[in-house]
Computed example of a mutant assay.
Amino acid sequence: MKLQVSVLSAAIATVSLVSAGLFSGSALAQQQQQTQQQSRGYAAYNYVGAAVADHDGGDSILLEGSYEFKSPYFVSGYYRNFDNDFGSSNDVIAAKLGRYFWLSQGLTADAGLRMGHVDFGQNDTGFWGVEANLRQRIEQFEFYGGLGWVDYFDAGSDNQYQLGVNYYINSDVSVGVGYQDSEFGDGVRLRGSYHF
């Protein structure tokens, strides 16, 4: 009887050790997969890109980028050079600190504080503002829309919006089209981005 109890105890201990080993191996693989995803970050908030826009009163070239420095927090910024229909050129530089939230499968929201400096021709002014966006990823397509409010120190305030779609050619490259209200008015925007 003692021999049977000893054998049964040894069998239970062996099964427990094997189960614990399998479970910890599975948990370790899951943890490594999550770590890899976190180290790469969410592609929508890790990119560099360029765009051209056709505004009501001219055209602009835009250089932009974003970096998720500590998930889910990110910093983004852009430089826009605007050539108006009257032959002069204006520019703006801005940065944003934001946070995104996973709402459901493929759906995220982000909110942030933006600040920068804009040249309106006769007036140069700093500004600050807030904005919020929604993004829905469906396979290779990402649909987005957002609202913002900007206070120009020497030029009043403005409500701004954007909407559009990006197509991910692969995990690193996307192209897109959108409609946006910016510092220099409404405009259709074509963009290309490299994601990392």
Rank of each mutant, 00 (worst) to 15 (best):
50 A>P: 01
97 L>P: 03
3 L>W: 04
57 G>S: 07
159 N>L: 06
153 F>A: 05
118 V>M: 07
172 D>F: 14
104 S>F: 11
157 S>A: 06
172 D>P: 03
76 S>L: 10
22 L>Y: 12
107 L>P: 02
142 E>I: 13
118 V>I: 13
100 Y>V: 01
46 N>I: 08
170 N>I: 08
150 V>K: 00
114 R>G: 04
72 P>I: 05
9 S>P: 02
26 S>Q: 12
179 Y>V: 08
113 L>K: 06
74 F>E: 05
115 M>G: 12
88 S>T: 15
158 D>P: 02
98 G>V: 06
178 G>S: 09
103 L>H: 06
77 G>N: 09
144 Y>E: 05
75 V>F: 10
21 G>T: 09
51 A>Y: 08
163 L>N: 02
176 G>R: 13
65 G>S: 10
49 G>R: 02
145 G>R: 02
53 A>L: 10
166 N>T: 05
110 D>F: 07
63 L>N: 03
9 S>R: 15
105 Q>S: 15
143 F>Y: 13
127 F>Y: 11
148 G>W: 00
176 G>D: 09
2 K>S: 14
112 G>N: 11
110 D>R: 08
40 R>A: 06
54 D>L: 12
8 L>W: 02
71 S>N: 08
38 Q>W: 01
61 I>D: 04
85 D>V: 13
180 Q>E: 15
165 V>M: 13
10 A>S: 11
135 R>C: 00
45 Y>K: 04
120 F>P: 02
150 V>F: 00
28 L>K: 09
78 Y>D: 14
98 G>H: 04
2 K>Y: 15
50 A>R: 01
116 G>Y: 08
13 A>G: 07
96 K>G: 02
42 Y>I: 08
49 G>I: 03
39 S>W: 00
113 L>M: 11
176 G>M: 12
134 L>N: 04
73 Y>M: 12
69 F>E: 03
53 A>F: 03
81 N>P: 00
65 G>K: 11
22 L>S: 12
113 L>A: 14
29 A>G: 04
117 H>P: 02
99 R>Q: 09
101 F>A: 10
4 Q>D: 10
4 Q>R: 05
72 P>T: 03
58 G>K: 05
16 S>Q: 15
6 S>W: 06
39 S>Y: 00
6 S>E: 15
181 D>I: 07
174 S>C: 10
8 L>K: 10
193 S>I: 00
63 L>T: 07
190 L>N: 02
83 D>N: 15
65 G>D: 12
87 G>D: 07
7 V>L: 13
6 S>V: 09
126 G>V: 02
124 D>R: 14
149 W>K: 06
167 Y>K: 08
121 G>Q: 05
91 D>C: 09
109 A>Y: 12
56 D>K: 07
130 V>I: 15
93 I>Y: 11
190 L>F: 11
123 N>S: 06
135 R>Y: 13
129 G>N: 12
68 E>V: 06
27 A>T: 14
104 S>D: 15
75 V>E: 06
17 L>Y: 09
138 I>Y: 07
28 L>T: 08
17 L>F: 10
173 V>C: 12
192 G>L: 10
149 W>M: 05
25 G>I: 02
55 H>T: 05
116 G>H: 10
67 Y>C: 03
17 L>Q: 14
55 H>C: 04
